[in-house]
Structures are given as C-alpha cells and as structure tokens.
Amino acid sequence: MQTINAFDAPEMKNPHKVSARKLLDFKHALVIMLDIKPHETLLPHITPVDVFFYILDGEGEVKIGEEVEQVKKDDIVFSPAKIVHLLRNNHDEANFRVLVVKTPKPTSETKLL
C-alpha cells in the first residue's frame, strides 16, 4: 500500500506559476493537486489526454472550449483530450483547491497557449 499526504508532496515548477503537487505518477494516470490562490489562473492549455477535475475546496471558474461554469467543492468536471481549458480563482480571499487526474498518463507535453 502506498499512502501519501497531499501537502507533504513537493511542489512542482510549472508554466502556470500556481501551486501544484504531483501526488501519483504511474503507468495509467497522473494525479496532481492544484492550490490556486485568489485571482490566480491556470492558463489556457491543451492536454493530450482526458482529464477530470475534482474540486476539493473553494469555488472557481472552469472553461473548457467555449463553455464556462462556476464550480464548487465536491463538483467533478470532465475535460476531453485536446480541448483548450483553464481554471480560474476569481475570489478575493479563499483558495481554489483542485485534484487533477490525467488518464492515461500523458506521453507528450501539455501545450500552453
């Protein structure tokens, strides 16, 4: 059994300049926790694989293609491969914490726009 405390995982550098911690990285999936501070945005990008976002805490905005939705704790959002998407925290005080699951594990880079 492998047990990981999400906040013990080291932060990863990323082009979005948001707090990102890689929690699991194995053959079939990549799992990352984002902690998006007030007024931060996960920039528009295209992921080569399907992704789902599970909102752990807070509220924020998710844009996939031309669709935009306000999401909150315990919502799950599916983002198909190769569609432009972004996440945004429009709040003044609360962080927007999101579990990101990419499956299968990407074999090519995410394209930042």
Rank of each mutant, 00 (worst) to 15 (best):
L42S: 14
M33I: 07
G60T: 07
D57W: 15
N89F: 01
V98Q: 02
V98G: 01
T47L: 03
L56C: 07
V100G: 08
H28A: 15
V84E: 14
D75G: 02
N95M: 08
K102I: 07
K22L: 13
D35W: 05
F96V: 03
K63G: 12
A29K: 00
T41W: 00
N5A: 13
T110H: 04
I76L: 05
S79V: 13
K13H: 13
F78W: 11
N5S: 13
P38G: 04
V51H: 07
T110W: 05
I83D: 13
V31F: 11
I4A: 04
L43I: 09
D35N: 09
L23G: 00
A81Y: 06
A94S: 07
G58L: 09
E40H: 14
A6L: 15
A20V: 05
L24Q: 05
G58M: 12
F7G: 10
V84R: 04
K111F: 10
T107I: 15
K105P: 08
I32T: 15
P104T: 02
F96M: 05
I46H: 06
M33Q: 13
E40P: 07
P106T: 07
D35I: 07
K102M: 14
D50C: 03
F53Y: 15
E93V: 14
V100R: 00
L42P: 05
V98N: 01
L43W: 04
L42N: 11
N14L: 01
H85S: 09
F52P: 05
F96E: 05
D75P: 02
K63Q: 14
P104K: 00
G60K: 01
V101P: 02
P38C: 03
N90T: 11
D57R: 15
V49Y: 01
M12F: 09
L86W: 08
P44Y: 00
G65V: 00
H91R: 12
E11C: 09
A29H: 03
E40I: 04
L87K: 01
V77L: 02
V84L: 07
P38M: 03
T47P: 01
E109F: 14
L113E: 15
P104H: 00
K22S: 13
V51I: 14
E109R: 15
G65C: 00
P80S: 04
K72Q: 09
R21W: 04
T103F: 12
K105Y: 03
E66I: 08
K13L: 10
I32M: 08
K72V: 08
K22D: 13
F26V: 13
I46W: 05
P80L: 09
T110C: 04
V18T: 08
D35P: 06
L42E: 15
V71F: 02
R97W: 11
S79K: 02
L34E: 14
N14F: 01
D8I: 06
V77C: 00
D35V: 11
